[in-house]
Design a protein around this nucleic acid. Structure first.
Length: 530
DNA sequence: TTCCGACAGTGGGGTCGCAAT
DNA sequence: ATTGCGACCCCACTATCGGAA
């Protein structure tokens, strides 16, 4: 099969707007992909390379040669090149990788170049990704959608599942079974603004602490333990504490779901940044000694021969408590969400979780099965939200459907005392593009252009006059912004043309929302004593 | 007919290790 | 020693389609 066939399909998919049209186009392309091509084509149509990591990215695409006139690249040739790039390492590897991209792009026609650029950058943006490919695979292989979904949920790898479906149909799909040691798509939680809204969605539920760490799925088979992240990355080697504590459990086989978080001396949870840095480190011995990890579990998908994914939440919890009594996350059960007292007790439990430094709570239906990879109504997360009035300092031109619109806003707080510049100025705390409707996007594009002071390639700097009401989850330490602080998950709630910049919040107010972790506090104390 | 679940898109901050400078 | 880059951690939110109610 030729790369040009995939490129043509991708262009057609991008041009179609109806989902069923996209699916039909994808299915037609998949049907043509036989044998060794099938898994690669499935990966590409979902916007990803077959290799999990290639070492290639935006930077390798900066100097594109003129496109070839006629197509010559085959699927196998391109996949072999990407595979070669993914294996390169050591001095000179960057140059060799660059050379591979150059060769591919030189041989590629214009549509093929667009496809390769999308795959290498990871931003194909054709209006179809893994979700629609699942539908397309079912259609192409003439098997029920549910069979493909189930196989993918327990196997986790789309190219494998697609190839099996196309080659062997339903029989091949049914061979994919939940198996200990093989990562499966974790269940996700939908957001809700308040606890009662969450309970309205779930019905009778367990309200659990939401820990601000890294999600882990742990497989134990005898003495063998494997640990996977939310994206099914294997991090076993980086979390020896987790391996150790799971080995001590009194179970032979298990698949467990939980969260790791860095422990602090005070017993309060470490900020996410600390946990994240610890889990990313490869010098495990040193890292583990300096920043030990603790494990908290909240679900069990398999215990000693029993698959639990189709059992109700309450049943899974019971099995978890029996298998790992010391590691189970604290929770409060609401038997009847229509009972006001029951709900207010849950609210007290949630308030206590926050007081202990946790991120919020997750409300989990007692009835719901473990819906792998879905963000269903079974689990609902509730986190507190902070709002401030900040000032727009600049805005960036958007991409894709936001082309021609000023999208990404640079946000600043007032700096009345001139700690970071002239008195009465502003100090930048981060950017956001979230929360904007098309109407708001149009309005701010016009308004900000009227305030424009100077324009660089992507950024329009403006007179600091437009106030925006911003919601965010918290203030974190920043190595990037001048105040050493940045907003976490900032989003726009509303433009406030009724307010003047002089009424915006100050950097002092922002600092008040910064929860300082133990280590940072100790460090600050040390430098003060010196 | 209206409502709502699932998807894709549009990007955010931080951190690490590695290769290039 | 510093810088740039890729790969992952954590994400929120809106628009759209199409099936469910």
């Amino acid at each position: 099969m030729l790369l040009a066939d995939i490129a043509a399909a991708s262009e057609a998919v991008a041009a179609a707007s109806a989902r069923r049209d996209k699916i039909a186009l994808l299915a037609a392309c998949l049907r043509q992909a036989s044998g060794t091509d099938a898994p690669v084509v499935a990966a590409w149509l979902s916007g990803r390379t077959f290799q999990r990591r290639t070492g290639l990215g935006w930077a390798s695409l900066r100097s594109a040669p003129p496109p070839a006139v006629s197509p010559s690249l085959t699927v196998q040739m391109v996949d072999a090149s990407l595979a070669r790039a993914s294996l390169l390492t050591g001095p000179g590897s960057s140059g060799e990788r660059q050379q591979i991209v150059l060769e591919l792009m030189t041989a590629a026609t214009a549509p093929e170049q667009r496809l390769l650029t999308g795959l290498i950058s990871g931003e194909l943006r054709q209006g179809a990704a893994a979700g629609l490919i699942v539908d397309a695979v079912a259609k192409a292989a003439a098997v029920p959608l549910a069979s493909v979904r189930r196989a993918l949920a327990v196997h986790g790898d789309l190219p494998d599942v697609a190839a099996a479906a196309l080659e062997g149909g339903e029989a091949a799909l049914s061979a994919f079974q939940l198996s200990v040691g093989r990562a499966l798509a974790p269940m996700l939680a939908a957001p809700a603004p308040e606890l009662d809204a969450a309970l309205a969605k779930t019905g009778p539920a367990g309200v659990e602490w939401k820990l601000d760490g890294v999600r882990v799925q742990i497989h134990r088979q005898g003495d063998e333990v494997a640990v996977f992240t939310r994206t099914l990355d294997d991090i076993t080697a980086r979390v020896p504490e987790v391996v150790r504590v799971v080995r001590e459990l009194d179970v032979g086989q298990a698949i467990l779901d939980g969260e790791v978080i860095a422990a602090t001396a005070s017993g309060r949870p470490a900020p996410f940044q600390v946990t994240s840095a610890r889990v990313a480190r490869r010098d495990v011995e040193k890292a583990s000694a300096a920043t030990p990890l603790s494990l908290t579990l909240f679900d069990a998908l398999h215990v000693d021969g029993d698959d639990l994914i189709d059992r109700p939440g309450s049943g899974r919890r019971t099995r978890l408590e029996a298998a790992a009594p010391s590691l189970v996350v604290p929770r409060h059960v609401v038997e009847d969400p229509s009972e006001a007292e029951d709900v207010s007790r849950a609210q007290a439990f949630a308030a206590d979780a926050l007081a202990r430094g946790h991120e919020g709570v997750v409300v989990k239906s007692l009835e719901a099965a473990y819906t792998m990879g879905r963000r269903g109504a079974g689990w609902v997360k509730v986190k507190p939200r902070i709002t401030l009035d900040l000032v727009v300092l600049a805005a960036e031109w958007g991409h894709g459907r936001r082309t021609g619109k000023l999208s990404n806003l640079h946000l600043g707080a007032r700096d009345p005392d001139g700690e970071y510049g002239p008195p009465g100025g502003f100090v930048m705390l981060g950017k956001t593009f979230k929360g904007l409707t098309d109407q708001m996007l149009a309005w701010q594009t016009e308004r900000l252009q009227a305030l424009a002071e100077r324009e660089a390639k992507w950024v329009v700097h403006v007179r600091p006059e437009l106030v925006v009401e911003i919601a965010f989850d918290g203030v974190q330490r920043s190595p990037r912004y001048p105040a050493g602080l940045a907003l976490r998950f900032a989003r726009v709630l509303a433009h406030r043309p009724d307010k003047s910049a002089a009424e915006a919040d100050t950097i002092t107010t922002v600092r008040g929302h910064h929860v300082v972790d133990d280590e940072a506090a100790a460090e600050a104390e040390e430098t003060e004593q010196v």
